[in-house]
Amino acid sequence: MGALEIINFYLVPGIVIGSIYALGAVGITLVFSILRYAHLAHGDLATLGAFLALGAVTLGGVSPYVALPVAMVLTAAAAVMIDKAFYAYLRERPKIVTVMASLGVALMVRAIVQVVWGVDSETYTRGIVRPDVWFGIRLRDRELITIFAMIGLVLALHVFLQQSKWGKAMRAMSDNPDLALLSGVDNKKVVMLTWIIVGGLCAAAGVFLGLNYELKAMMGWTMLLPMFAAAILGGVGRVEGAVLGGLIVGIAEEMSTLFLPTEYKAATAFAILLLMLLVRPTGLLKGKVL
């Protein structure tokens, strides 16, 4: 097998799925470093985002790329409402209570998706898309857009966290919550802002997953493990680490099919996660706060 085949059939799909994992892992890392719990409804929030975009495509007759920002806004709103309805009451309790509650929220969100959109696979557009060929490398538009959208969203988040007043407040809350309160930062606003960003990122991950593969009620849930693996791999609390982790997990999953049956793809993420926890539990980039 030549280098071009490896690039076309393993590396490119790996980078694409890796970009999708990265979008999810960034959200996981944000929740972990600011709210300090593992959010198990993350994948199903992505599913919700994907299907909300499908709603915009079928009802509004728009392209999935126009539906993407709509789905991001709606999912952000849903994330804020879920927080207010379920997690806000548990904030003073041990964090494991919220982790378990998020598992319940995951099941609930998935059930809503199944009730509204059914259990069959769906797609945004029908027909086969022919890839463009660049120096022998075959790329579809949607693959390029996925990769660049991920880069754009992560860069925007980075600038927001580093430069803006409220971005700095989020970093402060993640760094030293007590001192942030003593400085007059309104905890509730930071939590809400976190959920707006996380909801938007979840929707983006879901829409790009649906665009490159297909929409299923279980699509987000099956993505949960690779997303967590990516966040831990990169070092929890590190946005750039989550991106790196997402790409590594995605590429490793695709490359694993060179040696292993495709059914073992999901096990690759798990293997990477275990290996990382054994060798370097702090992650590639040492885990820290935002």
Binding site: K165, K168, A169, R171, A172, D175, N176, D178, L179, A180, L182, S183, G184, V185, K288, V289, L290
Partner: peptide, 26 residues
């Protein structure tokens, strides 16, 4: 009224200037 706790009284992962900026948050 501003209060400086005895321990963990800075934002460790933020720069000195950003620490001051957080002080002026309001």
């Amino acid at each position: 009224v501003c209060y400086v706790p005895q321990v963990s009284n800075v934002f460790r992962e933020m720069t000195v200037h950003e620490n001051l900026e957080m002080g002026a948050f309001l």
